[in-house]
């Protein structure tokens, strides 16, 4: 095992460091700019520098019943899609981990397809299928659509954790007289708990701000991203849209951040124990 310690690492040239830093800023600064614009008193344009400073748009946004409805809907959709993804993803990961069977390699391929193919393909495919079966577009058609691409996130997280968990622990538990259920409850579950949490949070974030598939599978329902999308092509409430966009960033930021932190720490401890 080659040494992973940082002291043997060469020093990066200043040009490389600068380029890396530049790319990182390029990735992040645009999101801060939305926040900046929530504070502008200007309603009709995106004038920069801001002509003044106000926090009134937050209050205006909070008074809008249509926004509250969309926010609630997005929460409900994301919550149910996450639960479905947690169940299906964990099952698939367990099956792939514990046995070798014909077509095992295709499972990953099948699960990753909904995020590998452009969202529009998934969206229009679901729309023709749902329409062809004369199923009315509803809350549940949105959930079904979201679950298809959330499964793979849970699956990847849980499978990676399974592979890090040593099989001897499970054998030891069984040897000591625990039955399968006890082993699951006291050995497997504590081991994969944070992976479930990470996968679940990512799935939630993914569903909460999904727009492409949703435009095809929603009927009259307006999720928060659909609301923002309608403002993109025909901006009517610019300041309120800025506030909503900031709220979406905040709501998705925390789950994503913690999910990444959990996965990073999991692979870090793996490096230490090796």
């Amino acid at each position: 095992m080659p040494s992973r310690s940082s002291d043997t690492r060469p020093k990066a040239s200043w040009a490389l460091t600068l380029a890396a830093l530049g790319t990182l800023l390029f990735l992040h600064v645009p999101m801060w700019i939305i926040f900046l614009y929530t504070l502008t008193p200007e309603e009709a344009t995106y004038t920069f520098p801001l002509p003044g400073f106000t926090t009134k748009w937050y209050g205006v946004a909070l008074q809008r019943p249509d926004l509250w409805r969309s926010l609630t809907l997005s929460f409900q959709v994301a919550a149910i899609a996450t639960v479905v993804a947690l169940i299906l993803g964990t099952f698939a990961a367990a099956a792939v981990y514990r046995s070798n069977f014909f077509g095992r390699e295709s499972i990953s391929f099948l699960l990753v397809l909904p995020i590998a193919l452009p969202g529009i393909v998934t969206g229009i495919a679901l729309r023709t299928a749902i329409g062809g079966l004369d199923i009315p577009f509803s809350f549940w058609t949105i959930v079904i659509g979201h679950a298809t691409f959330c499964v793979v996130v849970v699956y990847n997280n849980v499978l990676a954790r399974f592979r890090r968990t040593s099989a001897t622990m499970i054998e030891a538990s069984m040897d000591l007289g625990a039955n399968s259920f006890q082993t699951f409850r006291h050995v497997v579950l504590p081991n994969i708990a944070t992976a479930l949490l990470a996968g679940g949070m990512l799935a939630f974030a993914l569903s909460f701000d999904e727009v492409i598939v949703t435009t095809f599978t929603a009927g009259q329902q307006t999720t928060l991203p659909i609301w923002i999308f309608s403002q993109l092509s025909r901006p009517r409430d610019r300041p309120v849209t800025n506030v909503v966009a900031t709220i979406v960033i905040l709501i998705t930021f925390l789950p994503i951040f913690f999910a990444q932190k959990i996965s990073a720490e999991a692979s870090d401890t793996e490096g230490e124990t090796k």
């Binding site: 645009p30 999101m31 939305i34 909460f208 701000d209 923002i228 979406v248 998705t252 994503i256 951040f257």
Partner: peptide, 13 residues
């Protein structure tokens, strides 16, 4: 974080 965070909001920015 940008990879997972809202695609739509990032376009909007």
């Amino acid at each position: 974080i940008p990879l997972w965070s809202s695609y739509l909001v990032r376009v909007y920015a």
